[in-house]
């Protein structure tokens, strides 16, 4: 009989685990929602690609065959991504160009700034947005789909789709925050020494300013605590509401004080992935006085 009791206890213990796993799987790969937040990220990423690299890839800058090939691919892929023509293919194309710039031109050919975090993040974000219905809203794809539906006399397709790409963006951001904090969880950083060094490097040179030690230590603890908080708290609605503004402020401060290129802006843009896509859709609909994708879906079904 004791064995039966154990089995019952095991069953009771396993059941919530299974339920939690099922909920996770449902969240990760089985959720459908509005495509508008994915589309906004798609458009924002195209603009960030241009902001970061367009100036360096103008055709006169590198007239070698490899340079021209890279520039042609970059501008065609990002233009398609921006206007949303074959959007998901364009996202894969743009992300692949970004990875080629990061790995080949950056690491192999020595263009050091292209090996930085911001470059990798942009490329990976483009690849992940390809896994979303990013072309079903705010795109030439959408325009063509609506025009086709009108010609056929049927309702336009719903601006909805599976959101597993957004979930992967959430996973990527949490991994990024966690390991950024984990790397800083050392005496060297928490003592304030690394913040002091960074401050001297960019601001005061070799003259250590009086009174820097205490603020540097406080900032160090604050940064590490915030990054751990963002890693574990942003995916959940209950904690997200307290973390979004500190997170955005954190990236804004980094952007203003350190040369992080497009990193902060990319992170801020990708924060859209944390929010319920249908809630984002409702906000857009309310602001613009238009119907939401949810309404469109109901009209169709």
């Amino acid at each position: 009989m004791p064995a039966r009791t154990d089995a019952a206890a095991d069953w009771l213990a396993v059941r919530p685990t299974h339920a939690m796993a099922a909920r996770f799987v449902d969240w990760a790969v089985d959720t459908e929602g509005s495509s508008r937040s994915s589309a906004l990220i798609r458009i924002g990423l195209a603009m960030l690609f241009w902001s970061r690299w367009a100036g360096e890839l103008l055709l006169y800058r590198d007239q070698s065959p490899a340079g021209l090939f890279l520039a042609a691919n970059f501008f065609v892929a990002t233009m398609l991504l921006f206007v949303g023509y074959h959007s998901r293919v364009a996202a894969v194309w743009a992300g692949s160009v970004g990875l080629a710039m990061y790995y080949y031109f950056g690491f192999q050919l020595g263009r050091e700034p292209w090996t930085h975090h911001h470059a990798y993040l942009l490329a990976v974000a483009a690849l992940l947005i390809a896994l979303t219905p990013c072309g079903r809203s705010y795109s030439l794809d959408r325009y063509l789909a609506v025009a086709h539906a009108e010609r056929m006399g049927v309702p336009p397709p719903a601006e909805r789709g599976n959101l597993w790409g957004l979930r992967l963006i959430v996973a990527q951001l949490s991994v990024l925050y966690f390991f950024a904090a984990f790397d800083k969880s050392s005496h060297a950083f928490l003592s304030g020494a690394r913040i002091e060094q960074i401050f001297l490097w960019f601001y005061d040179g070799s003259d250590y300013p009086a009174g820097l030690a205490l603020p540097a230590t406080i900032v160090s603890f604050g940064v590490v605590g915030l990054e751990y908080g963002l890693a574990f708290g942003l995916p959940f609605r209950a904690t997200r509401r307290y973390l979004v503004l500190p997170g955005l402020a954190f990236h804004a401060i980094i952007y203003l004080t350190l040369p992080v290129y497009t990193f902060s802006a990319t992170m801020a843009l990708l924060y859209l992935a944390y929010f319920d896509a249908d809630a984002v859709d409702r906000v857009i609909a309310r602001l613009q006085g238009i119907g939401s994708a949810g309404i469109a879906r109901e009209e169709i079904s």
Partner: peptide
């Protein structure tokens, strides 16, 4: 960060780990 393997193929997310190294406070 855990196993000490450094390769450009994997992103480590060790941000601001190199900036400021070498600077001299004199």
């Amino acid at each position: 960060q855990i196993f000490g393997v450094q390769t450009p193929w994997l992103r480590s997310w060790t941000m601001f780990s190199a900036i400021g190294l070498g600077v001299i406070d004199a």
